[in-house]
Nucleic acid binder design. Structure first.
Ligand SMILES: [Zn+2]
Ligand SMILES: [Zn+2]
Ligand SMILES: [Zn+2]
Ligand SMILES: [Zn+2]
Lengths: 161, 161
DNA sequence: CGCGGGTTTGTTACAGTGTATCACCGCAAC
DNA sequence: GTTGCGGTGATACACTGTAACAAACCCGCG
């Protein structure tokens, strides 16, 4: 389930992601435009969650300015297609490396040290969550589960510095 | 576990909350200043999550301006004391009506219709969450659990409009 | 080919959220 | 008194996100 270690670039992942994104868009009859490709590439390239303004800055160059609003639009598209997730507690975005089943929940594991964000399945918490909501008489439409802490690699490094 | 129905003011709750806050601060040797009292009152008064700027506006009056920065400082204090929670998905704040045990987790139940936010215990999800994190090799420090949906009362009202 | 209508992008402006900094005040301790 | 400290006021600023409109692009159709 681990995708980024945050200590080592993982361009293969980024490359695979772009290929998958292209396939997804083609299958759905949607445009995987250069801008969308670049934005997804920027998100996938760094091992950590990226803010929209960071992405805009990264894509800008002398002679070419990418405005944040353009990045937001691309991110909206990518999120709708399930290619990118938004991390509410960080106002930041990560690429999604998985094919989530529709309605499937996700837990985001956010490393406070290296900034990497991993995804885990909600499988083991779903029953308990459902019971809790049922008891409260609450009908859910959307859940956010974000856990901050130390990823395995950072924990190792702290133990032997 | 239900605290606000969002359809009916609940000033008793607000009043109790202020009393409890005062007791908590006294017990910890901290100052429950007029501003902090007002901010907590403003948060507790409305049945729904309040933004910092909403609070600032509500506390301001002709001849007296309460700047957002002051509200943020009061909110920081109140959050440190566990008297207020921040709802990450809404950039908003709610009063806490419970005495949480240290390290105890909370699930926020956010009604998309009436805006009320209720709290539920994580008791029934904790085991599953721990197993999931264990498996991912992740050491948690802080969790955010926010569920959006319809509270019981709003669901009723939709059924018989 | 040229036209028409939807989609994408550029550009600007603006709203909303949160923080940094410094000055001032009140109070308690020395 | 004066010194120190926590709280507040005030201004400015950084960061996050959206609205509105124009220009460019794409694609199918006459
Ligand atoms: Zn995902
Ligand atoms: Zn890490
Ligand atoms: Zn609480
Ligand atoms: Zn409701």
């Amino acid at each position: 389930m681990h995708r980024h270690d945050g200590h080592d670039a993982c361009r293969t992942d980024a490359h695979d992601m772009l290929a998958r994104a292209e396939a997804v868009c083609r299958a759905r009859g949607l445009q995987f435009t250069p801008l969308r490709r670049e934005v997804l590439g920027a998100v996938a390239d760094s091992g950590k969650a990226q803010g929209a303004y960071d992405i805009a800055e990264r894509l800008s160059a002398p002679g070419r300015r990418v405005a944040p609003v353009s990045v937001y639009r691309a991110l909206d598209f990518l999120m709708e297609q399930g290619l990118v997730h938004r991390i509410a507690s960080r106002n930041a975005f990560i690429p999604c490396a998985y094919d989530h089943a529709p309605g499937e929940g996700v837990i985001f594991l956010i490393c406070r040290t290296c900034g990497a964000v991993d995804e885990a399945s909600t499988q083991e918490v779903e029953d308990g969550l459902e019971r809790t909501l049922e008891r409260a008489g609450f009908t859910p439409t959307h859940s956010i589960l974000e856990v901050e802490g130390d990823c395995g690699l950072c924990r190792e490094q702290k133990r032997t510095p």
